[in-house]
Amino acid sequence: MTPHMPGDAVPRSVNWAAAVCLFAVVAMAAILAALCSGSVAVEPAQVIAALVHGGDDLMARIVLDLRLPRVLAGFTVGGLLALSGALMQVLLRNPLAEPYVLGISGGASAFALAAIALGLGSAWMHAGALAGALFSMFLVFALPRAGGNWDPLRVLLTGVVIAAGWGAVISFLLAVAPAAQVHGMLYWLMGDLGQARFSYWSLGLLGGAVILSLAMGRSLNLLVHGELQAAALGVSVAPVRGVVYFLASLTAAAAVMEAGSIGFVGLIIPHAVRLIVGADHRIVLPLCVLSGGTLLVIADALARTIVAPQQLPVGVLTAMLGVPAFLLLLRTMARAQRT
């Protein structure tokens, strides 16, 4: 007989399979809603028919050629950002870490804006964003190590300072750029899915990163308790840290390259998910991907419709939706814990 006392047999805070199913259903509903909405309203039944059978009529072409690539790109970018934020928080053992705060998005923006200001093509802009993100990531994680030990707080501080530095570079570029380019630059800065196109490459990266981080799930849980504690339980700290660093950089760079600099998703989504399902990264990470994707899909649908025919940058909407929702959740959960 198992020794048993009430309150002990709580293997999981929530049923993992049920949580993943629920979040996946919500994600699919959001994608469906996003496919329906736009300058031309399409009925859900028509959307589903187009998805299942294809077809050459106007509605099917709008759904399949115009909206679907953008919606899927939005979902992928949201998932990448949330995953990257969650991984950086583990890496730095700090709830404030995310690509935006650490200057990763800033580096990407500075390089991409330079490409726009110089009037170079969009291929250059994308390449610049990727190079800027990776360069910034390298700076943030290589500079503090020169002194010797790995100190998460020093890495975070370096990131914050580097982000401020990129901010100055960005202001400089905006000040000197030709007026014709400034509008495009501002949209890029606020994060915009207007140019984003679905690519199997990003989706593959997202899938691969999720699988790899799930395989390291228990190690990530232990790493949060400190590197010595993790090492004492048999985690090979240096390799795991290396892989997490690599995944966090690559996912952030891919997201920024696709959609410009979108803040808050990487910060808010992981915390919101932790508030709901607890601290185990084997459930936190997949739910981050699903809910990050969902948030961006909804935000982009609103960005396309609320002041149509004009389109808003999606970064504005993620913050407008995400910040109040997160504050509300924080309050509700704090109250629930006290009782």
Binding site: P11, V224, Q229, R274, A279
Partner: peptide
């Protein structure tokens, strides 16, 4: 002990 993202006692 460091508990950045606190889990449950059981976990």
């Amino acid at each position: 002990s460091q508990d950045t993202f606190p889990g449950t006692v059981f976990e």
